[in-house]
Design a protein around this nucleic acid. Structure first.
Length: 579
RNA sequence: CGGGGUGUGGCGCAGCUUGGUAGCGCACCUGCUUUGGGAGCAGGGGGUCGGAGGUUCGAAUCCUCUCACCCCGACCA
């Protein structure tokens, strides 16, 4: 491609709105433009990157036995109502009405649509397993779009759905996708890590995320890895071994109310009472919001030395939304200012109290007394207060003990580029999608769903691979493998050499961009660094007089003088050495 | 939705406090010179100052409302 025939609007300065380096670079280098908040246009260079990455995804999906389809972006509300997610998807679903006033959804994912497709048509276990995928635009009415392509309201995703006759067969299908995912990200030049994740709004049995580890603010999620074994989970999901159990008293002591003036936080209370934080129980008040926007107060109890994990809490509460109570609400529920809430003698006896497992093991704990500047000593479950439900409610963090071995958890940040869900029969049950098994019995499909962010993965690559000058693309997702830069295109011999090299490379099937603009050398070289093609061929007067041009890899500062005749072979050789 | 902030030519910004009829850098167009890491000189085009209302002789500037965008939080691939 000749630069003057395509559209590569590079900018010297990044728009003020861009926060991440990857976002700034994609805008500056002329890959994307914003149309509205969270809505981006993919310019010619980005389009090529998307196509290259998509092709890698297709290759590996096909190799794993999946078949490509395209499903509509638009769906009638009924299919979502049928699964029950029309209610739970809530405000992040893009919705609209047609001219007849009928309700529609712009799909953010396609479990409902594909389940309704196969329902009644996939009839026999003999047709299973089946895995269908598509690469398509998805919509999501994000609360707050940001970070360019990372969190948009419209984005491209590869989504695959597997249908199996039973759980054992599904595990095989799931593993095929996992294997394919590692290959896909490797081919895109990215190291990916698979971590356990919460199933979230998707539901189902278990889930994993594929993450690119970064150390910048682009890391949207905290991940915990064991430094000894292969345990890996995101922070929502991660568990840990309790290494800090308090000494448990053998006898229940008498409940005692003590003044704790000004001691509202765990630190203040432990300092004031001179006790360890693990003898305290944190009482956290939340608003559980249902699908009709009603807020019910709930209480969560975790040991004083732990952090509450809201995702785990809501897995028990099952609210549409969980919201930390504000001061007024805390006051209303407990009758005390923030910092003195406790489970003993809560004003509203109907209130649901969720406690972490660790709390259940404690005796004679210190809790707020629901009265300003006052705490209880020696509170005991069963005697002084009741717990409605128990579960794991704590957040793992760096340095905690691995749940599976004697290693330590290390915390890293990552960008999610893919995910896999074991859905079980959630959708086939709710949407009544069944097949006949070998005994002639109607059974719900065991399903899986598998996503890859087609537009966010390249941005993750930019976040991972760049320098002060611009992007450094992994070669197999670069828009062009080679950029030919004639330093003065007006000079006859330089132009002829550039045109000839461009023609030869094109003929050899190498993706090549020729910067045929009548720009100064500095401008072209800076733009070449900015857009980040893996190999640059610079053609200048001095070396050309000796029949040579300069070959430079974007990821290295070494410049090689290469004879014009051997240039194609030399470039192909260089490309082979690049990631 | 809560908190904070910003809207002035394509991009980045100044001007606003103290009202007087819009400016700078980059980009763009023309000419000459220059030509290996974002050239120089000269000339030129382009902005209802986000929108609506109001105050005033006069509003980018003050007031009210509104819209958009960005940052932090909740949500999330």
């Amino acid at each position: 491609m000749r630069w003057t025939q395509t559209y590569i609007p590079t900018l010297r300065e990044a728009p003020a709105e861009a926060e991440l380096i990857s976002h700034k670079l994609l805008v500056r280098a002329g890959y994307i433009r914003k149309l509205a908040s969270g809505i981006y246009l993919y310019l010619p260079l980005m389009q090529r990157v998307i196509q290259k990455f998509s092709q890698i995804v297709r290759d590996e999906m096909n190799a794993a036995g999946a078949v490509e389809v395209t499903m509509s972006a638009l769906a009638p509300a009924e299919v979502w109502q049928k699964s029950g997610r029309y209610e739970t998807a809530g405000r992040e679903q893009m919705r609209l009405k047609d001219r007849h006033g009928r309700d529609y959804v712009l799909n953010g994912t396609h479990e409902e649509v594909i389940t309704s497709l196969v329902s009644g048509e996939l009839k026999s276990y003999k047709q299973l397993p089946l895995n269908m995928y598509q690469i398509q635009i998805k919509f999501r009415d994000e609360i707050r779009p940001r970070f360019g392509l990372m969190r948009g309201r419209e984005f491209i995703m590869k989504d695959a759905y597997s249908f199996d006759a039973d759980v054992e067969s599904h595990r095989v299908s799931y593993q095929k996708m996992v294997d394919a995912y590692f290959k896909i990200f490797e081919r895109a030049g990215l190291d990916s890590r698979m971590v356990e994740s919460d199933t979230g709004a998707m539901g189902g049995e278990s889930a994993h995320e594929f993450m690119v580890i970064v150390d910048t603010s682009a890391g949207e999620e905290y991940l915990l890895f064991c430094d000894k074994c292969d345990y890996a989970a995101n922070r929502e999901k991660a568990t840990f071994r309790d290494e800090n159990p308090p000494i448990i008293d053998s006898e229940e002591k008498e409940l005692e109310k003590v003044p704790t003036p000004g001691a509202a936080t765990i630190e203040e209370v432990t300092a004031f009472l001179k006790v360890d934080a693990n003898r305290l129980v944190k009482t956290l008040i939340y608003k559980a919001i249902d699908d009709k926007d009603n807020a019910t107060p709930i209480v969560a109890l975790v040991r004083g030395d732990r952090e509450l994990n809201e995702v785990k809490l809501n897995n028990l509460v099952k609210a549409v939304e969980l919201e930390m109570a504000d001061e007024d609400f805390v006051c209303e529920v407990t009758g005390a200012p923030v910092g003195f809430a406790g489970p003993v003698g809560l004003k509203n006896k109907e209130i649901t109290i969720y406690a972490d497992h660790e709390v259940m093991a404690l005796k004679n704990v210190i809790v707020g007394a629901n009265e300003a500047d006052t705490h209880y000593l020696n509170a005991n479950i069963g005697r002084d207060f009741e717990v409605t439900e128990t579960g794991d409610l704590t957040t793992a963090s760096e340095g905690d003990a691995c749940p599976n071995c004697d290693g330590r958890l290390v915390c890293k940040k990552g960008i999610e580029v893919g995910n896999t869900f074991m859905l079980g029969t959630k959708y086939s049950d709710s949407m009544d999608a069944k097949f006949l098994n070998s005994n002639g019995k109607a059974m719900p499909f065991v399903m899986g769903s598998y996503g890859i962010g087609i537009t966010r993965t390249p941005q993750a690559a930019v976040e991972r691979y760049h320098d002060d000058g611009g992007i450094i693309w992994p070669k197999d997702i670069a828009p062009y493998s080679v950029e030919v830069v004639p330093l003065n295109y007006k000079q006859d011999n330089i132009r002829e050499a550039a045109d000839s090299i461009y023609a030869k490379l094109s003929e050899a099937g190498v993706d090549v961009l020729l910067d045929d603009r009548p720009e100064r050398a500095g401008v072209k070289l800076n733009d070449a660094d900015l857009i980040g093609c893996p190999v640059r061929i610079a053609i200048g007067a001095k070396s050309l007089d000796e029949g040579k041009v300069e070959l430079k890899a974007r990821n290295s500062s070494e410049v090689h003088l290469v004879a014009v005749e051997g240039i194609v072979a030399e470039i192909e050789k260089t490309l082979k050495t690049l990631k």
